[in-house]
Every structure is written in C-alpha cells, then in structure tokens.
C-alpha cells in the first residue's frame, strides 16, 4: 500500500458517499444517471467475486464490502426509494453501446481465459466507460448541480491517483498490470474535459456548472 493508492481509495469512497448523501438528504435523484450507478454496481460485483475466496488484508476485504454495499444502496435509492424523481428521459444513454464492446474486448484481451479473470477484465474495462451515461446526461440537461460535480471530481481523481500508484509500484516493486493501467489512463482521460470545467467554473463558487 502506498499513499497514492490510499488517497485514491479515500477519494473513491468520498465520491460514493457524496452522491449517496446527496440523494438521501435531498430525497431526489434528479440529474443523476441511474444507468451509470447500475454500471458501477456491476463493476464492483464482477471485480469483487474473490471477496470470499481470497483474503488479502482486512482493509481490502472491508473496502470491497463497503463499496459493494454503498453502490447497491445508491442503485436502490434511485430505482426504488426515489424512483419518482428519477429523470429517465434525460438518462437516455444506450448502455448496450458500452456493454457489447466491453464484453467483446474482455474476451479478446485478458490474462487468462478463466471466468474470474475474464470477469475481472470486464470490470476493469467497464469501469473506464461507466461514467459515460452521467456525463452524457449532464451535456443533455446542460448543467449539473455543484454537489454532482464534486462527486465527479473525486471519482475522476481516484483513478488519476491510481495512475500515480502504478508509477510508484512499478519503480519500487516492479509491479505492472497492463490491463488496469491502460484502462485507467483511458478512464482518466474521459474526465479531463470535466476537470477543466470543474476548475474553471465550479471553483469560482458558482452554484451550477453549465456546459458550453
């Protein structure tokens, strides 16, 4: 464990908690893409299948359980508890355009053709594009509440910190995970445009971020 990965995991946890609290306290999921949250729940489900078969550390196990629980709780709030506030009309991204290529690629590119490895690879590739429906929804509505932008900022920051973690681990222990690194770089690039808007707009203290 290194400071970059710890900061990344904390940033990821903060993002998930920000969103969950926003929905719970405002009792509304307006402006939130339920599809992205479903995809994130699928990412954690397919990635953490080794939760009961492999023990790495208490931290690893606890964080996996927390991420799974919070992501399912978020999906529950959106599609069950506050479903009448779910903006399905604007959450219109065709997720099959993400799932088909990701499934295809994970059958093409993986470390081993075993169910666990292919599902893990699927979760890595899926995570890179899972935010697309949310970013698409923001471009469609033309704006995002500032709390939603904070969610996206910490979510984007988490994988950027993981890149620093991979650089660190490569130089200190020769660790290299090509699939995770390539996918993580692509994922972070998707946030660059948003990061620019976030820094130039939201940090100026505007309540809403309106896209050009």
């Amino acid at each position: 464990m290194n400071v970059f990965r710890l900061a990344g995991d904390v940033s990821h946890l903060v993002a998930i908690i920000i969103l969950l609290l926003k929905i719970w306290r405002s009792r509304s999921c307006a402006g939130i893409s339920g599809k992205s949250q479903l995809l994130f729940a699928l990412v954690f489900t397919t990635r953490y299948l080794d939760l009961f078969t492999v023990y790495i550390s208490a931290y690893n196990t606890i964080m996996k359980v927390v991420f799974l629980a919070l992501s399912y709780a978020t999906v529950y709030l959106i599609y069950m508890r506050f479903r009448n506030t779910y903006d399905s009309e604007n959450d219109s991204f065709r997720v099959e355009f993400l799932l088909v290529p990701v499934i295809g690629l994970s059958f093409l590119e993986h470390y081993a053709f075993t169910p666990m490895e292919v599902l893990w690879t699927f979760s890595i590739f899926l995570e890179a594009v899972a935010i697309m429906p949310q970013l698409f929804m923001i471009t469609k509505t033309g704006e995002a509440e500032s709390i939603t932008t904070h969610y996206l900022f910490f979510l984007g920051l988490y994988r950027a910190l993981y890149i620093a973690n991979w650089v660190w681990r490569y130089h200190t222990e020769g660790f290299f995970d090509q699939i995770a690194v390539v996918s993580g770089v692509v994922q972070t690039i998707f946030y660059c445009d948003f990061f620019y808007l976030y820094v130039t707009k939201v940090v100026q203290g505007r309540s809403k971020m309106s896209l050009p």
Binding site: R5, D9, H12, D50, V54, I56, S57, N60, M63, K64, F67, Y111, W120, Y162, N165, G174, F175, F176, D177, Q178, I179, A180
Partner: peptide, 10 residues
Amino acid sequence: RTHTQKKDEL
C-alpha cells in the same frame, strides 16, 4: 511482460 500477477488492488 504484460503484468505481475497480483490482484491486491481495489
């Protein structure tokens, strides 16, 4: 070398 087989990350 494409990877060091170590799934210890979240």
